[in-house]
Simulated assay, not measured.
Amino acid sequence: MSRKWVWGILLIGIILTASIVLGPSLTLENAKLQQSLLNEYIQSHLISAAALYFFSYLVITALSIPGAAVVTLLGAALFGFWLSLLLVSFASTLGATLAFLSSRFLLREWVQKRFGAKLETINRGMDRDGAFYLFSLRLIPVFPFFLINLLMGLTSIKATRYYWVSQLGMLPGTAVYLNAGTQLAQIDSLAGIVSPSVLLAFALLGVFPLLMKWLLNKLPHRRSDAT
Rank of each mutant, 00 (worst) to 15 (best):
A99P: 11
L119S: 07
A18E: 09
I14M: 12
F202V: 03
S44P: 00
Y133G: 06
R223S: 01
S44G: 06
S102P: 05
P66T: 10
W5H: 13
L204I: 03
L94A: 07
L150I: 07
V70D: 12
A226I: 07
L219A: 10
A77D: 09
H45T: 08
L154T: 07
R161A: 04
L94D: 01
G116N: 09
Q167V: 08
N39I: 10
F115T: 02
F90G: 06
F79Q: 02
R3V: 14
A68S: 15
S136T: 15
P24C: 02
A180D: 00
Y53R: 06
L178K: 03
W5T: 13
A91I: 02
S25F: 14
T155E: 04
L101V: 07
L22M: 12
G80N: 04
G13S: 10
A117F: 10
F202G: 01
S166D: 14
I9G: 01
D188L: 12
S44E: 15
G173C: 07
F55K: 03
V111D: 03
T121D: 11
A18M: 13
V59D: 03
L33R: 15
V176I: 14
R161E: 06
S48Q: 14
I140S: 02
Q167H: 13
A159L: 01
F146G: 07
G67Y: 13
K213V: 00
G23Y: 10
R223N: 11
D127W: 00
A191L: 11
I15N: 00
I47Q: 11
P172V: 03
L216G: 06
M170R: 12
V176P: 01
V207Y: 00
G125V: 09
R114T: 14
E120Q: 13
G153S: 04
F90M: 13
P220E: 02
G181Q: 02
S197M: 05
V165K: 01
P144R: 05
L107Q: 05
V194C: 07
A50G: 00
A175S: 10
A31V: 03
K213P: 01
A69C: 07
P24L: 06
W164Q: 06
N217V: 05
S197Y: 08
A62G: 03
S44N: 15
R161N: 13
A68F: 09
S197W: 04
L106E: 06
P196Y: 12
D188G: 15
L204K: 03
T155D: 00
K213T: 04
S89H: 05
G169S: 05
I12Q: 03
I14W: 12
Q43S: 14
W214Y: 12
L107I: 02
V207G: 00
N217I: 05
N217W: 07
I12C: 10
K218A: 14
P144V: 10
E109M: 08
S189V: 04
M212W: 01
I122S: 11
L11D: 02
R138C: 15
S224T: 10
I187H: 03
W110R: 08
T97A: 06
T17H: 05
L216D: 10
V142Q: 09
F202T: 00
Q112H: 13
S64Y: 05
S136G: 14
I122L: 11
G80E: 04
Y41M: 05
L58Q: 01
L16R: 04
L200E: 11
L119N: 06
A18K: 12
